[in-house]
């Protein structure tokens, strides 16, 4: 091997956590075999379930605590409920969830308008920082966007002209 150094005195703390027992067969958990008794531990008290909580069908219950950040709602919520019929190993679980996320983005924009707020997408995307630190890249992105949009518009208008003739 190249550059194999033997003196590590310049590296503060070299070897102080070395553990010869830590080979691949040395478990990193404090094994107790308690899990052989199944789901038998004394559970913490249950957080009141006063919102809709979707739970994996790979467990029997809602965990003792859970987050309340964004309960399922609207069309995206319906898709999420469908997804949770399937197990965590199934694409039928994850792909609808990804779809629900995209639907949820549209719902978010509509919700902003409903509340009288026009989302400032330029600011939300950190446009100010990009302009300050990477103006060239930003101009490039805008130019590519303009070219793509122009090409699409030109293509569509040519098609409509040819279908008229």
């Amino acid at each position: 091997m190249e550059n194999q150094e033997k003196d590590y005195s310049h590296i503060k703390g070299w070897g102080i956590d070395a553990d010869p027992k830590n080979d691949p067969t040395y478990p990193m958990r404090k094994r107790s075999n308690d899990e052989h008794n199944g789901y038998g531990w004394k559970r913490p008290p249950q957080q009141p379930i006063d919102i809709e909580v979707l739970h994996s069908n790979e467990r029997p219950n809602v965990t003792a605590v859970f987050g309340t950040s964004a309960p399922p709602s609207g069309l995206s919520g319906m898709i999420r409920r469908y997804a949770f019929r399937y197990g965590e190993g199934s694409f039928a679980h994850w792909l609808p969830l990804l779809m629900a996320d995209r639907v949820n983005v549209v719902e978010g924009i509509l919700d902003d308008f409903r509340r009288g707020r026009v989302p400032n997408i330029f600011a939300e995307r950190g446009g100010k920082a990009e302009w300050k630190h990477n103006p060239k890249g930003m101009v490039q992105k805008v130019a590519i966007g303009v070219v793509v949009v122009t090409a699409v518009v030109a293509l569509l208008s040519r098609r409509s002209r040819s279908s008229e003739s």
């Binding site: 958990r29 404090k30 094994r31 107790s32 308690d34 899990e35 789901y39 531990w41 004394k42 559970r43 913490p44 909580v53 979707l54 739970h55 994996s56 790979e58 467990r59 219950n61 809602v62 965990t63 003792a64 605590v65 859970f66 987050g67 949770f84 965590e88």
Partner: peptide
């Protein structure tokens, strides 16, 4: 991490079984 489940007892605090209802593969 709840500190009570069999995984927390084994110091697998990233794998708590009482903090994430939506997925069993990861704790809260």
């Amino acid at each position: 991490a709840c500190g009570e489940c069999t995984f927390c007892k084994q110091e697998l605090y990233g794998n708590c079984h009482e903090s994430n209802p939506q997925a069993t593969a990861v704790g809260g």
